[in-house]
Design a binder for these strands. Structure first.
Lengths: 154, 154
DNA sequence: ATAATTTCGTTAGTGCGACTAACGTTAGAG
DNA sequence: CTCTAACGTTAGTCGCACTAACGAAATTAT
């Protein structure tokens, strides 16, 4: 599950070396690896984390609500919730107010698990950003937010 | 192939909103979309571009050499070269000096195609970075290079 | 009231990129 | 001459993004 076939940056073509889209993809890859590997130690994936985090912050929610907040597609959310319920981290129950909906609720066990995941995520960020100064970290976050903000609202 | 189920940043959980790994993944997603959509108009993908670019810059090369330079896995490179040869953009011939190797050579047609792709890639970068000032673009590139540099060696 | 439309959850499936395993062929080193 | 390593290839896994279609339930328009 490890390894890394990172391109030899020194020998990479000029045209590619400074290409923002490529740097972004590479950096995202490292980020995903850091996060993924750590979450895997607790048999979790980023969707689990996103879902649990959303539930703790906003309380019980429907699956479509969770989809909006987390960016997980409704169709993929099904499996995520299945996995979380199987482990007793959330409960899925039909919403009496609107019987089309499922009310997803965080359990105590889920809350506890989330705390563990928080630590792993923090570790991953630290490792990912290791070569950056505090200032650079803030700059990076600021600039990425500009990009994400621009492209997320249409 | 379009659409975008970008999470509603406003309603996203606190914990996720400023998470560098997540911002990186989102931004990389937008980048990939911009690049991918444009390349698709010429039935190309980023691997095609990377391969052609490497060949133009360094001249004929083996598949493993291309793998090193572009970051494409040897196993995936096979299909890429197949596609490029099918379109007459490169030629694959056994290397007489080392018969384990294939010498991949860029054709004139390939060189011409690469020029078109260059334009598309440039467009994609412009759109991706639209909300950023010149200074911010330079900052972003600089910081991403730090991250990539750090995680690619070792 | 009833018909038409919309929302929600679900199933199934596609496509792509990253990555591993295994294998035959060929080269190079001892 | 044998052992090992490199190359290209095939096949397959995994995670994530995304689409299509559908039944059940709710909302709306008539």
């Amino acid at each position: 599950m490890e390894g890394g076939h990172s391109p030899d940056e020194a020998n990479a073509p000029e045209r590619l070396r400074a290409l923002p889209s490529r740097l972004l993809n590479l950096a995202a890859g490292y980020a995903q690896r850091q996060v993924g590997e750590r979450l895997a130690t607790l048999d979790s994936r980023k969707w689990h984390y996103a879902t649990l985090a959303a539930l703790e912050e906003f309380g019980p929610d429907s699956q479509s609500g969770l989809s909006d907040r987390t960016g997980i597609y409704r169709s993929d959310l099904v499996a995520t919730i299945n996995e979380l319920t199987a482990r007793g981290l959330v409960v899925r129950a039909p919403d009496p107010a609107d019987r089309r909906r499922n009310a997803i609720t965080l359990t105590d066990e889920g809350r506890r698990h989330l705390k563990h995941l928080d630590l792993l995520i923090a570790d991953a960020q630290a490792e990912l950003l290791a070569p950056l100064s505090e200032v650079d970290r803030a700059e990076l976050t600021r600039i990425l937010k500009l990009i994400v903000g621009h492209h997320s609202r249409l």
